[in-house]
Design a binder for these strands. Structure first.
Lengths: 239, 239
DNA sequence: ATTGATATTATCAATTTGATAATATCAAGT
DNA sequence: ACTTGATATTATCAAATTGATAATATCAAT
């Protein structure tokens, strides 16, 4: 055996306060769906997956786009930091938010050692006012130079979304109250990055949604029925 | 709008080095499979899912069992910390290791604010010597009082394992070089906490394994064929 | 040869998925 | 009123996957 006992002793004695501190930050990938404003057409604007970004006002990476974030304060949990950061950018309190991954490369921040605990948040953009931030199309972000390692964080966030969309109901946190099945399918397609067959999609999704008696109008084709997520229907429990 | 601009300004000015530091640690849930030593029988000992634990030598939680862990040093990434901690407990270099979740409750460590970035590692216990640590059956751990919030961390690790077992090949990092399908099924059953039908299990697993010409012996019943994981077979690429 | 035990293969029904076709409904143009 | 273009919705059938059970195989011990 070539175990190094000294190393073990060293570790036992190690007191982190003897060392220059490592700062802990939270960065949040906030996803939302935005409709590109329809121009001359009468049609609905195509929907797309958007991410909330902030233009940095200070160095490093001044004027570049970055994820909203902030440092973890001594008296708050990491989740609380995430919620606090969200509050500075939106007015919503009830936002779906889950931890994604912690990024700890040594030089990810040029100023000092900063470890970033990344989160994912999903919001309904129709209900959400944003401040000091902007929505950017996820496809456009791929060709954008972002601050820090935020491009990597976003890639991981997209992976998580892709991985979870088929066995959870998280998409619905991004959907408006009422939506058509085609709209929903369009979101699935941009997240999964592939086309789905409408008939099959309908089948699989049907257990998660409830029809309303409303329809889209003036479409130049058969109107489509509006649905709600079953998780949004208090009715579904009682009836 | 009731956005608080002052808060934003505060955050922009916030310099983490002004505050008492937050220490960052890594704790690792190392999974392995151990055979309970067969006693008077001639049969193979039942296999079980085990987790590597360390008996604490110092306060707090002196003499309690804890996950192996250590602090993140200024010059290493979090992944490197995890690998270093693993090396103090095992002799293996090539160990499957992935980040699990970061635990940041304020009082999870009574000494000071410590955030723990938890990892999962999977090892083949037959190849792995351990030092200053012991294997404990996952079922027994459920009724054991562990140090810190390590019981919570282990619960999350088990969830991750359960979630990933069906769409990845991670189990095989815990399996010995050669194994029977029943042994493999037993591991699946303890991880998923439910019985599986042998015929169906065989079918679904068959694409991931390759048969050898070896069989178990002296079993008092039909011998079972030994298989290898396809990912362990250089052959499978060439032939 | 029989029994008990587990491994392995076979079989068939039930369910889920993939793919395509058929039908419906609107606006706009003829 | 009828046709066209567009998308929504339902129907249909084949293909693949899964659930469940039965049949067969092979060993040690009796």
């Amino acid at each position: 055996m070539k175990f190094d006992t000294d190393e073990q002793e060293f570790l036992d004695k190690y007191d982190p306060s003897d060392y220059p501190s490592i700062a802990v930050a939270v960065d949040i990938v906030v996803f939302g769906i935005s409709k590109s404003t329809p121009k001359s057409y009468r049609r609905l604007g195509k929907q797309s997956l958007n991410i909330m970004l902030v233009k940095r006002k200070e160095y490093p990476f001044k004027d570049k786009l970055a994820l909203p974030g902030g440092f973890v304060l001594p008296e708050e949990t990491i989740d609380e930091t995430a919620k606090r950061v969200l509050k500075t950018k939106t007015e919503l309190n009830e936002i779906y938010c889950e931890q994604l991954y912690t990024f700890g490369d040594i030089n990810r921040d040029p100023r000092m050692r900063v470890i970033s605990c990344a989160y994912i948040a999903l919001v309904d953009t129709e209900k959400t006012q944003i401040k000091d931030a902007e929505w950017v199309d996820a496809d456009i972000i791929k060709n954008t130079d972002l601050a820090f390692d935020h491009a990597v964080i976003i890639m991981e966030a997209l992976k998580r979304l892709r991985g979870k969309i088929n066995y959870t109901d998280i998409v619905f946190y991004m959907m408006p109250e009422k939506f058509t099945i085609s709209q929903l399918q369009e979101i699935y397609e941009t997240i999964l990055q592939k086309k789905l067959l409408p008939a099959a999609f309908r089948r699989t999704i049907s257990g998660k949604i409830i029809q309303t008696e409303e329809f889209t109008q003036n479409a130049g084709h058969r109107p489509s029925r509006l649905y709600r997520w079953i998780g949004n229907c208090a009715d579904s429990v009682n009836k």
